[in-house]
């Protein structure tokens, strides 16, 4: 029953007039989600460059595998390569739309698999300007939405939508998100803290299409508007629909990840 309604809303989304801004926001995000479903699984590497106000840099390298899960949040397995003292550390996340995510950490020195709390949404990921929630799988049900306006951003036609986190312990009151009308992907996000002041700005650049259908960015750049620190993420070696299964995302997979 749900699916026809979703499709109907999605089809109407760009043109409907009787919609409230909330309905229009929801329709846009639902359509964005629909256009990006069916990739099954994805593997990619990423390099994070952390830069402080003085310009000093440090590097993080990791590999991330993700499994698309229908009807629930995605599963992901992240493996750290750099810095060397955390090399081999692996992080397994089974995300859920409404209930808290299940997360395990693998500590290679002890060969220990440890279930960890998923409460830590707003904390820094590896000392970077990205919080855990910025990198988590963005299920439609995790936010309420409100369409603000359509506008041109750096020569692109975009739809501007406000996201209001519905999960607990978010570090944000809201996010303002610019969605490219041509490729239906996010090109910019502003994060507003709990006092509703601008905290961070994310720009996402250099989208490329994979399997003639799915758009993935090469670069994500997060600037902390308050501290002047920034983190640049470069994505490499995207591979989609590689045939990963649930077995590649269970606790045994965590132990053999390398």
């Amino acid at each position: 029953m749900l699916l026809p309604i979703v499709l109907l809303t999605a089809t109407l989304a760009p043109t409907a007039h009787a919609q409230t801004p909330e309905e229009k926001g929801m329709a846009i995000v639902t359509e964005m989600e629909r256009r990006d479903s069916g990739w099954k699984d994805q593997r990619a590497s990423l390099v994070m460059t952390l830069r402080n106000r003085q310009g000093q840099e440090s590097r993080r390298e990791l590999r991330i595998s993700t499994l698309e899960v229908e009807g629930d949040g995605d599963k992901s397995l992240s493996l750290f390569e750099n810095p060397r003292d955390v090399k081999g550390t692996a992080f397994l996340s089974h995300t859920h739309a409404t209930k808290p995510d299940d997360q395990w950490l693998y500590l290679p020195a002890l060969k220990r698999v440890k279930r960890i709390s998923s409460r830590n949404k707003s904390g820094s990921f590896m000392g970077s300007e990205f919080a855990y929630e910025d990198l988590a799988s963005q299920e439609v049900d995790k936010f309420r939405y409100k369409w603000l306006r359509d506008e041109e951003l750096d020569g692109r036609q975009t739809m501007v939508v406000e996201y209001f986190p519905q999960y607990e312990h978010s570090g944000y009151t809201r996010q303002v998100v610019w969605i490219d009308k041509d490729i239906w992907r996010i090109v910019k996000t502003e994060y507003y803290d709990r006092r509703n002041a601008l905290l961070k700005t994310l720009t996402i650049e250099d989208y490329r299409q994979y399997l003639d259908r799915f758009w993935r960015p090469d670069v994500m750049h997060m600037v902390n508007n308050r501290t002047g620190k920034s983190t640049r993420v470069e994505w490499q070696d995207y591979r989609l629909s590689t045939g990963l299964t649930d077995r590649d995302f269970d606790r045994n997979a965590l132990k053999r990840a390398r």
Binding site: I116, S117, R119
Partner: peptide, 8 residues
């Protein structure tokens, strides 16, 4: 282990 939010 019972993982109840911030309490383990």
């Amino acid at each position: 282990q019972a993982t109840k939010e911030a309490m383990l």
